[in-house]
Each structure stands twice: as structure tokens, then as C-alpha cells.
Computed example of a mutant assay.
Amino acid sequence: MKSFFEGIAYLFEEILFLPFEALRKLELESWTLANTLNWIFMLVCAAAIVYWVLQLKKFNDNGEENKDVTAHSYL
């Protein structure tokens, strides 16, 4: 069993965490390049929020939203 768990440790430490090691080395060279991944995530999340709000507005304008008191069980 010890070799099984050592194999799992090797998989995670040497193979799966390799991109994070590259980012760590990149951070020492350039802060901007290292944080572009964070900016990409923030832009994707901002686009998703804008899309969600526009969809909510579209359903609200069409009158499709059920605003009854009994529409939601937590009310």
C-alpha cells in the first residue's frame, strides 16, 4: 500500500502540479504575466454575470417571472 500512496503523491506533485510550478517561476520574472490567468478568470466571471443579469431582465420584461407569494417556498 505504501507504494500505491507514493504513486499518488508522485502523480500530484510531479505531473498535475507542473503548470502551477511554471506559474510560480513566471511570477519571479513578471508580475503581469503571472496574473493574466487571474484577469482571464475575472473577465469570464464578469461576462457570465452580465449575461445572467440580461437574461433576468429579459424574463422580467416579458412578464414570465412568477411573482406570486406562493411562488417560492421560502417566502
Rank of each mutant, 00 (worst) to 15 (best):
L28A: 07
F12C: 13
A9C: 08
L28I: 06
E13A: 08
E21T: 09
K67P: 00
A9R: 07
M42S: 13
E29R: 14
A48K: 03
K25N: 11
E14W: 02
G63V: 03
I15L: 09
M42V: 09
L26G: 02
E21M: 08
L11D: 09
A48P: 00
T36W: 01
E14H: 08
K57W: 10
E64F: 12
A47Y: 09
F41P: 02
T36Y: 02
F20W: 11
E21C: 05
L43A: 14
S3R: 14
E65R: 15
F4R: 14
S73N: 06
P19S: 04
M1A: 14
N38D: 12
V53S: 07
E29N: 12
A71P: 04
Y51C: 08
F41I: 15
A46D: 00
S30E: 07
Y51P: 04
Y74W: 12
E65C: 08
D61T: 11
L56H: 07
L56S: 04
C45K: 13
L43V: 12
M42K: 05
M1K: 12
F20K: 04
L33I: 02
M42F: 14
K57L: 13
L23W: 13
G63Q: 05
F59T: 04
S73T: 11
A46C: 07
A48E: 02
Q55V: 08
M42L: 13
F5C: 11
S30D: 13
R24T: 02
N62H: 05
L11F: 10
A48S: 11
A47N: 07
A46G: 07
G7P: 06
L43M: 10
W39M: 14
R24C: 01
T32I: 12
D68Q: 12
I8H: 04
S3Y: 15
W39N: 15
T32A: 11
L16F: 06
E65H: 08
T36R: 14
L16Y: 05
K58E: 03
A9N: 13
W31G: 01
Q55I: 09
K58W: 05
L54H: 07
K2C: 05
A47Q: 04
